[in-house]
Structure formats: C-alpha cells, structure tokens
Design a protein around this nucleic acid. Structure first.
Lengths: 156, 156
DNA sequence: AAATTATTTGAATAAATTTACATGTTTTTT
DNA sequence: AAAAAACATGTAAATTTATTCAAATAATTT
C-alpha cells in the first residue's frame, strides 16, 4: 500500500525517541497511532531500515536505528558540513537534542546552527564531537529535524 | 566453569573477523575450536557482550560487537583516571548527570565515557573540569551509575 | 571444612523473529 | 486497456533467540 513510506517514517521517529524492546511492543506503539499492521510486516520494515536489536546493560533489549547517512541540502555552510558527513547522528532525550559529529567538527557546526538564527533553537553547547541543542519550550522534535534539514535515509 | 572468560574472548575474535548471522552458526564456529556449549549459553554470552543483530544490505543478518573494544577488557583509561581520583563527583538534575573532575581532566574522561559505546548515554559535553552527561530517554540514574561504576570496579 | 551463597550451564520450553506462500494492489509495459 | 511484472502484506509455518528450571560447580562466610 501507499502507507509504507509513512509507516517507516513513524517507526524511525518512535525508535529515535523511545526504548522499544520487541516487535510486539512496536506493534502497540504503532496501533496507538492508528497504524495497524502485523508483526511480520514490522520484521520486514525493521530489516529494511537496518534496525539492530541490541542488549542494554539493564538486561533488556532495544531496537536501534543505524547511524544517519543521508541528508538533503539546499545551500549553506551547515549543509555543506552535513553533506560531507561531518554530522553523524542526532538523537533526543527529553527536550534536548544531542548531535554527534566527527571529531573536531562540533563547534564549527554549532556555530552554523546558531547563525541560522532560528527562533526554535535557544542555544547550543559544543564539545569536540558532540553538540547539545536546547530547543525553545514547546518546539517539537520534528521541527528541530526539519530546521536542520536532516533527512534520514531509507533504503530504496 | 572457568572457560567462560576464554570463551567470551574467542567469541569476540570470531565476530570481529567473520560474518556470523545466527547463534547456530556461531555454535559451529566455536565447535571447530573445541569449545562446546549450547545455544542457550551463546544467547547469554551475546547478551553479556552486548552484541547486536543487525540486517545487512544483502538481505542477511550479522552479529556485531558494540563500538570500540572495551567489552571484556579488564581495565581501561577511564578506570585508571578514576582510580587516581580524577573523577570527583557525579550528581543528577532531571535526566542529566553532571560529573566533576580534577581541572583539565574533563575531556579525557568524557572521551572514555563516549567510547564505552553504551546505548544508555546519548552523549557528553566536557568543559575543563565538568562533564555534562545526557542519558537516553527512559534510562534511570541507577543505570548510569552502574554503567560508570562498572568501570570503577573490575568486572567479572 | 562445613555451610551458605553465588555462578555457570544444559535441557526443555517459551517467546520472538523471519520467511514461504498466497493474495490483492499498484506500476509498468506492450 | 489488457497483460505482465513488481510490490505490499497477512497467515501460518519454520527458524531463531531468550528464558525458566534444575543441577552442578565455584566462591564466600562462618
């Protein structure tokens, strides 16, 4: 059906923001969003998305997305950097975003983010290869991702 | 038995050097080396080693070791630093952890924490004597402490 | 050293995941 | 537009992986 693309998108969003330990669990999370499929389909989806199942230290498991690969880019310094693969990943925890970059790139990229002058981002703090992005209150994860022109690759 | 440590070592070597797609397969590879265990034990071993099962582009699966060694290694840099008292304290606020270190030590220790490659920690940002640790959503303070404690004390 | 407690493991089983097959849909080709 | 090819997905079966339970071994305590 034509829901597939959308479903894959939702799945990545779910996996990016929460801890999912089994396909059944993911099944429920999708059901909550009115997306009804069977576990078999999820198995196929996860295979397509190259999602790995990895053990956590607390004795449970978690499905994890592969590191970011592709970006779509209009123009600008930020996009130049990301399209060169300097940005490795972005993940969220609570209202914070954590971006991992290649070593040494963090402050350069953080500067670019700051200078986009977007209202949605309150500020950034950069280390050597990690940037902490603090969004303004009420700003969604999607808004941040869109702002940063981050697009996540799906095979095909 | 006393073979466990050795077996875990062999398993990491095998996984590092070849593509293993199932536990049964790993079972044979171990048998070739005169190591006879059951699949149940392998499941436990892989869990212990935090080995993830991930889909490959060719449609098959592969067991992959967690990023950067450190899995079974007796002690690491972090351990050395902490045992020398470089880490002064760890405290939490909300879902964030703040670690205080001796002046100048922060980035070195942050690097070690990052390179443990643990799923639980999204990223770190280091100043001169302070490290901000951003845990993944849903990860408890205890989990973080354990994770770091593990490096304080010798494991296994 | 005896008693207690913790660890390791296999066998069997449960649970979770993958896949073969069938069917309905969409897309492409002719 | 019909036919053919490619795709998406559910069902059910096969496979794979995780865990429960019991027993044996090792470690620790008394």
């Amino acid at each position: 059906m034509k829901n597939k693309r959308n479903r894959l998108q939702i799945i990545t969003e779910i996996l990016r923001s929460s801890v999912v330990g089994s396909q059944e669990e993911l099944l429920s999370l999708l059901a909550e969003r009115k997306l009804n499929v069977t576990q078999a389909t999820l198995s196929r989806d996860l295979k397509l998305l190259k999602v790995a199942k990895t053990p956590l230290t607390n004795g449970t498991y978690k499905y994890v997305l592969p590191p970011i690969t592709k970006t779509i880019s209009p123009q600008g310094t930020f996009n130049q950097l990301t399209s060169h693969g300097a940005v490795l990943s972005i993940e969220f925890s609570g209202n914070l975003a954590v971006m991992k970059t290649k070593p040494g790139y963090a402050s350069a990229i953080a500067w670019d983010i700051d200078n986009k002058g977007s209202m949605e981002i309150l500020g950034t703090i950069a280390g050597d290869d990690t940037i902490l992005i603090i969004p303004r209150e009420g700003v969604t994860r999607e808004q941040i991702l869109n702002l940063l022109d981050m697009t996540f690759s799906e095979s095909k």
